[in-house]
Design a protein around this nucleic acid. Structure first.
Lengths: 185, 185
DNA sequence: GAATATATGGAGTCGCCACTCCGTTTACAA
DNA sequence: TTGTAAACGGAGTGGCGACTCCATATATTC
């Protein structure tokens, strides 16, 4: 298929941005709200994303890819333990301010379109890599397998989101959690 | 106000049970479904619970009270550490099979009617009591304050629910988490 | 076993929201 | 320019779901 016309490309990008904003605030907002914020007719939204689900998936995919990139970036750092926990921190912190990221994390594995599923897999792979490095570096318990560590990541994200934690409480919660993940002194 | 007529009392109870079942499966099911399962007209549901929110709140309240009772019961056990972790286990296990309980936990503190809020407070108090005992018994780190421990409970519940964990993964996740909560050997 | 206050069922009503239709506008190519 | 395929906007449309109305039924009271 031919490349998009310039205005169409612009609109598509604006719609995605608006959707991320709107659904970040309240995940079951209406498509109209997205159109309004993007300053675009409703039909335009549906032309680019034929279904609300596809729009949501696109937002989700963007988020997951961003997290994956962050994980890859952190994998280059000197201290693998610090890198691992920094990533964990960041995911949880963003989840707290953006409701949808936690849902994104949850949905990514199971009921989602191919794009989102792929993005989720990429993100998990990058996170798994951070974990493996931190374990080789002796900073994270070697007997902690990926699935349960990932479950903790999702849980901490969703918990922080649901409970609207004060930042200090969130940090103390993570400190307790990290105590379970770290190797013993 | 006068006591309910016998049939009305029955119906009310059946509606509550049906609602717990239905909303446990999918939290945004329609009121009709509840009516169908309770074998009652829609109007009857709305007569007893004038609003969908009130129906949800009633379900939530029942759940919270049940958890509180369980916590109180466990507070009588010999081993306070075991009691604490048993409660934790149970909440998480139920969350995994009943979607709504986690939402319940999350919503209980903030946006909910007076009944649910009160039930939530009662439950948290009972859980706090379990925690305090386990700390006095030297089985849980004394420096873990209630808010972050509670946040972990919610997080673990929501994480287990969202990720549809295999039971063994869930158990290993909890083992890691408990490692952070327990006092060091 | 009436009389009557209480309850009931289910056919409506109403608003919201995902999605479509089509007449108008706009980017691009020649 | 001008022709035209590509995009656009926004007024529909249809369906769903919360909530109401009221004619009927049934518990309770005497």
């Amino acid at each position: 298929m031919r490349p998009l016309r310039a205005d169409a490309r612009d609109n598509r990008a604006r719609i995605l941005t608006a959707a991320e904003e709107v659904f970040g605030q309240s995940p079951n907002a209406s498509t109209d709200e997205v159109a309004k914020l993007a300053d675009v007719g409703i039909a335009t939204v549906f032309r680019h994303f034929p279904t609300k689900a596809e729009l949501l998936e696109a937002v989700l995919t963007v988020r997951l890819e961003r997290l994956r990139d962050r994980a890859i970036e952190l994998a280059g750092h000197d201290d693998p333990g610090a890198a691992f926990f920094a990533f964990f921190d960041q995911v949880v912190a963003e989840a707290a301010s953006k409701l949808a990221i936690a849902d994104a994390l949850g949905a990514a594995g199971s009921s989602a379109g191919a794009d989102a599923r792929e993005a989720g897999a990429g993100m998990r792979e990058a996170f798994g890599n951070l974990l493996a490095r931190a374990q080789r570096g002796g900073q994270v318990r070697a007997d902690a397998a990926f699935p349960e560590v990932y479950a903790l990541l999702i849980g901490a994200s969703r918990g922080a989101t649901a409970a609207r934690l004060e930042p200090e409480v969130r940090d103390r919660m993570l400190a307790l959690l990290y105590g379970g993940l770290r190797t013993r002194a």
